[in-house]
Design a protein around this nucleic acid. Structure first.
Length: 254
DNA sequence: ATGGTCGGCAACCGA
C-alpha cells in the first residue's frame, strides 16, 4: 500500500500536477494540505474521474485539507472536539483496518506572534486527542504538513534558524511530545542521512535554486504500521513543473 | 545584512 502527502498551496492551481502525479504513482491514499478553497469550489469531480474517493474541508483563501483514497472511507471527521476546532486543519478518515489523520499544523508566523503560542498549544491539543482516541496497537497513520523541522538534519542551516517558528526549540519540543504518543517517522526509518527536504521557501529564489530546504512534511506511523513500512521517498516532481509548488510529495509504502 | 516570491483575491494577508 502506497500513502502520500503533499502541501499543494492551492488545489485549483495544482490540479494538473496532482492528476499527473496520481496517474504516475498510483497511490492508495493521497493527503493534501492548503487547498485554499471553499467546499463548493473544490475540484472533487476531477479526482473522482481519476478513480479516487474524495474527502475535504476548506475555507476561503487559507488552509484546507483533503484526502483522496482508492477505497471508500467508512467514517470521516474534521477538527478538534473543543474550540477552536480548526476543521480545515485537522481531518481523520477511518478505513477498513487503518486510521489516517491528516493535519496542516499552524505555521506560527513569528516567535512573538500569538499564532506561535497557538501552534505550540495545537500540538498539545493534538496529543491529547490522540491519547483519547487511539492506542499504540491502533493501525494509525498521522501525516501532513507539521510546519516543524524536527532535528538539525531536517533544515539546511540549523544554526541560523533557531528563532524561526519552524525550528525554534519550543516548536520542536511540542512536535516531539506529540510524536511521543508512539509514532515512528517512516521517512527517517529508511533514510538516516541528512539533506532530504520537502519544502523550499520561494521567498528566496536563490535558496530554491540551490536546494536549500526544510523537512516539514511527515508520514508518521503507529508501531504496527511502522513494522509494515518497507520504503519511503520524496518525489521532487512538483519542483520541475512550470509553476512549481513550495512543497514536494512525500511517500511511504506499507 | 537585506530582501527576495507565490496564491487568493482584489488590498493586503499568509507562508
Amino acid at each position: 500500500m502506497r500513502i502520500a502527502t503533499f502541501n499543494v498551496n492551492s488545489v485549483r492551481t495544482r490540479e494538473g500536477i496532482i492528476r499527473r502525479w496520481l496517474d504516475e504513482h498510483q497511490p492508495d491514499i493521497l493527503a493534501i494540505q492548503e487547498t485554499k478553497v471553499t467546499d463548493d469550489l473544490f475540484p472533487a469531480a476531477s479526482f473522482e474521474e481519476a478513480g479516487y474517493h474524495v474527502y475535504f474541508r476548506g475555507q476561503k483563501s487559507y488552509n484546507g485539507v483533503a484526502l483522496l483514497s482508492r477505497t471508500p472511507g467508512l467514517e470521516v471527521g474534521y477538527g478538534f472536539d473543543d474550540e477552536p476546532a480548526d476543521a480545515s486543519r485537522l481531518q481523520w478518515v477511518r478505513f477498513k483496518g487503518l486510521h489516517v489523520v491528516n493535519t496542516y499544523v499552524p505555521q506560527g508566523r513569528d516567535i512573538e506572534h500569538p499564532m506561535y503560542a497557538y501552534k505550540i498549544q495545537w500540538f498539545q491539543r493534538l496529543r491529547a486527542w490522540f491519547d483519547r482516541r487511539f492506542t499504540k496497537r491502533s493501525p494509525l497513520i498521522w501525516l501532513g504538513d507539521m510546519n516543524v523541522a524536527h532535528d538539525p538534519i531536517d533544515v539546511h542551516n540549523p544554526e541560523e534558524r533557531k528563532k524561526h517558528v519552524c525550528y525554534h526549540n519550543d516548536a520542536r519540543a511540542a512536535f516531539a511530545h506529540c510524536r511521543d504518543w508512539g509514532f515512528i517517522d517512516t521517512f527517517r526509518l529508511h533514510h538516516p542521512e541528512p539533506g532530504h527536504y520537502t519544502f523550499y521557501d520561494y521567498r528566496n529564489p536563490r535558496n530554491v535554486k540551490d536546494g536549500k530546504g526544510w523537512r516539514l512534511d511527515y508520514i508518521l506511523a503507529s508501531p504496527p504500521m511502522a513494522r509494515r513500512c518497507h520504503n519511503a521517498y520524496i518525489d521532487v516532481a512538483p519542483r520541475l513543473e512550470p509553476r512549481p509548488s513550495d512543497h514536494v510529495v512525500l511517500v511511504a509504502e506499507f
